[in-house]
Amino acid sequence: MWIFFLDKKEDSMPENQEFLYVLLASLLGIAGHHFFLSIGLTKTTTSNAGVILGSVPLFTSIFAVWMLKERLTLIRIIGIILGLIGVSVIVLTGCQTFI
Rank of each mutant, 00 (worst) to 15 (best):
I90C: 00
T45H: 03
T45L: 02
R71C: 01
L82V: 10
G32T: 08
E10L: 13
S38H: 10
N16G: 04
L41N: 14
K69P: 00
I90K: 03
P14W: 06
V91Y: 03
T73I: 02
G40D: 12
L41G: 09
T45M: 01
K69M: 04
I77A: 13
M67S: 07
N48H: 13
F63P: 00
G50T: 00
H34V: 11
T45I: 00
L84Q: 08
S61M: 08
F59Y: 15
T46M: 09
F5T: 01
M67Y: 12
G79Q: 08
P57K: 10
K8L: 09
V51I: 15
F63H: 00
A49S: 15
S61F: 01
T60S: 09
G29T: 10
L41F: 14
V65K: 06
I78Y: 04
A64H: 03
T93W: 02
F98C: 07
F36C: 07
M13W: 15
L84R: 04
F98V: 13
K8A: 03
E18C: 03
E10R: 11
E70H: 00
I78A: 10
T45W: 00
A31Q: 09
T93N: 05
I62T: 10
T42G: 07
I62Y: 10
G83F: 06
G94Y: 02
L37G: 00
V91D: 04
A31I: 15
W66V: 15
V56I: 15
Y21D: 12
N16C: 06
I62D: 06
V22N: 04
